[in-house]
Design a protein around this nucleic acid. Sequence first.
DNA 1: TAGATTGTTAATCGATTAACAATC
DNA 2: TAGATTGTTAATCGATTAACAATC
Lengths: 214, 214
Amino acid sequence: MTDNKFKPAPEPTVRRLSRYYHLLTSLKEEGINDISSTTIANEIGVDPTLVRKDIEYMKVGGKPKTGFNVNLLLDSIRSYLNWVNPKDAFLVGCGSLGTAMLGYGRFKNYGMNFLAAFDVDDLKIGTTIHDTPVFELQKLTELAKRMEVQIGVITTPAHAAQSAADLFVEGGIKAIWNFAPIHLRLPENIILENAQLTQSLAVLTRNLIHQQLK
Amino acid sequence: MTDNKFKPAPEPTVRRLSRYYHLLTSLKEEGINDISSTTIANEIGVDPTLVRKDIEYMKVGGKPKTGFNVNLLLDSIRSYLNWVNPKDAFLVGCGSLGTAMLGYGRFKNYGMNFLAAFDVDDLKIGTTIHDTPVFELQKLTELAKRMEVQIGVITTPAHAAQSAADLFVEGGIKAIWNFAPIHLRLPENIILENAQLTQSLAVLTRNLIHQQLK
DNA sequence: TAGATTGTTAATCGATTAACAATC
DNA sequence: TAGATTGTTAATCGATTAACAATC
């Protein structure tokens, strides 16, 4: 096929697709089969045209007057974001956040599958956390290479994050999902996604101030 | 003062400011006193002009040839994002993610201060998690009103998130930081910040696919 | 059919980048 | 001084919104 299925959607679109997904899931549970772009737009708080543009990336068609089929949209989003083919992942740092991540258990439905976790704490090494085995940090590089792991998740304290990232890079990882509140230095070809809570919190606190100044 | 200190910066700028902050913290530890916009730009991976534009919002000046003072920049970011005046917060849902949040303990430095947590589990009610007392969910609304709490954090399972949000709204909360993977319906005047991990993960997995298609 | 909604092109808006004079 | 870097205006780029014909 020359017309690639995964025509690149801009990042804002990808973020919204994930929001549509959660909304559509609720609608499905409510027994709704079809929905218009206007309704989606009102719920999410964006322009209806934008919703249609976003949906266009997935090559899903709607019907004039009735709108889009909820099930079809859900499946298309899942497949467009490649959530149907989970990628293997390692996690470093089995503190409370790391444990919470391993315990979430539903990342499999969102494109990621934890194979193993790593820590420096002897008490944790050799145990399993929510069914994921914990190994000593030294084994990370070799295991990552051997198992061709693609995603590295960092939930260590800030001071340990850079060396964890270095181990991942050495192990041939392709993308890093970083939760440590620190700036990581990485080779250019490594995909970095910062899931820093402080960033999200900064947006929230800023909006709080703005509202008060009005 | 007519020229307001908090001139609204666009959201992308706010997110970058938080990234600069982490970078500058590292630089400070390395003993670096001054830094140019070019150096910051290279580390973060953006254009130098953009860095200067971002810094301009905080009314901090640099010096030609030497650049910006690291300490001054750090202080300005902290004060611009209002991290120096933590706002009180309640948290609902003391599962593993909620516990991790309460245990992080450093949100005080990023503008938020947990006063109390809430849950429906009798085994948790009456205890403290990392020094934060856990109350029964029914008390949330009244306590929020009485203590004039501004931020509500939701770390419940998806099915409990909407009712938790409703309690927060009834309690007069101004902003909600939502971690549940669900679409919340809220009155227009409530600030909503979604810190949904699935959204961040969607961006990561999409980038992974794009790289492979190249 | 009439009317609501899609699909798409054109216009607008806002953020980013380029250019360059001012300045330490 | 010469040169690097700031501060700012103008140009560009890309995402969002407006407009509207096509269609069920």
